[in-house]
């Protein structure tokens, strides 16, 4: 019934696909390993394995490839900026001039690769977030970070903080909306006046919101304590993460595809050259 109901972080879409069913630890690790593919790519044809991988991921997670492509939209500006930077500031063989700016063939290649690299990174991360619930993600991250507990890094506390933060985002969103409406109905005006006046107009919204966040935090802390929560104490899980043979298989595929793509990168241009020669004769 509330506006914030349509609000979700990471755009997690529940599903029954192969990727959905994987252990979050497997998915997070796989993401980091798979990132090697676009990062090892240095020439345009090197990106073919990356695109192929993304296609396989989209099929195995029941996300349409076009949807995955769209997930890069929010970073298009960043990509354009990086591309421009590489395009105009890479020294090398000049192919065109735009006023005082020189465009080199090396610059074109670099701009192209850099853009694709960022785009692939975003798409892979999106595939992870779409198929992993925030709670699973927090749980997976906790377990992956657990070796750091040896050096007194508060891993379980941080995971608990993530869990609670995720739980409270919609609540606080709704709360700020309510306070805003209440102040508008008392005549608050956010639209007129200079910058300072407008900034000041937000005090009646921010002050109550902060007060509420702190009261809530206080109440929540009491409630958690009364439910036997002790920071740092050993906790067990309702749904413990279970590494199945699927996860091992998926991991093996990931490693294999990285190796394959590295091999591809090494030989594709030689192969292409050979093919070109062959067609010449």
């Amino acid at each position: 019934m509330k506006l914030s109901n349509g609000f979700s972080i990471g755009q997690f879409v529940p599903g029954e696909s192969f990727v959905h069913s994987l252990d979050p630890r497997c998915k997070i690790t796989a993401l980091f390993i798979l990132l090697a593919i676009p990062f090892a790519a240095e020439k345009p044809l090197d990106f073919i394995p990356a695109v192929f991988c993304l296609y396989v991921i989209s099929a195995a997670s029941h996300i349409r490839f076009t949807k995955l492509l769209r997930s890069g939209r929010p970073v298009l500006f960043l990509i354009a900026f990086t591309a421009a930077l590489n395009l105009f500031w890479t020294p090398g063989h000049e192919v065109a001039r735009l006023g005082p700016l020189r465009i080199t063939s090396e610059g074109v290649t670099l701009a192209f690769c850099m853009s694709l690299r960022i785009y692939c990174l975003v798409m892979m991360a999106a595939a992870l977030m779409v198929t992993t619930s925030p709670m699973d993600f927090a749980g997976g991250a906790e377990r992956l970070m657990s070796p750091m507990a040896v050096v007194k890094f508060p891993v379980s506390e941080i995971a608990m903080m993530m869990t609670i933060a995720l739980r409270f985002i919609p609540t606080l969103f709704e709360e700020s909306e309510r306070i805003m409406k209440a102040q508008i109905s008392r005549g608050a005006d956010f639209e007129s006046g200079g910058l300072v006046k407008r900034a000041r107009a937000y005090i009646p919204i921010l002050a109550p919101l902060f007060i509420q966040v702190f009261t809530r935090a206080d109440c929540l802390a009491t409630a958690m304590e009364s439910r036997c929560y002790v920071p740092g104490a050993q906790r067990t899980k309702l749904n413990p993460l279970i590494w199945t043979s699927r996860d091992t298989a998926a991991m093996a595929c990931v490693v294999a595809s990285v190796v394959c793509s590295l091999v591809w990168n090494r030989y594709i241009y030689r192969l292409a050259a050979l093919l070109c020669q062959g067609s010449l004769f």
Binding site: R178, I179, A182, Q183, G187, D189, P208, I211, Q212
Partner: peptide, 26 residues
């Protein structure tokens, strides 16, 4: 005038006077 549910949650001022004066001064 609209009084929201649990209207205390909209308080921001340090005195009752300031809080009540908010609407008319707007």
């Amino acid at each position: 005038g609209l009084v929201f549910q649990y209207p205390e949650s909209q308080f921001f001022a340090e005195t009752v006077r300031e809080e009540i004066a908010f609407a008319p001064s707007n």
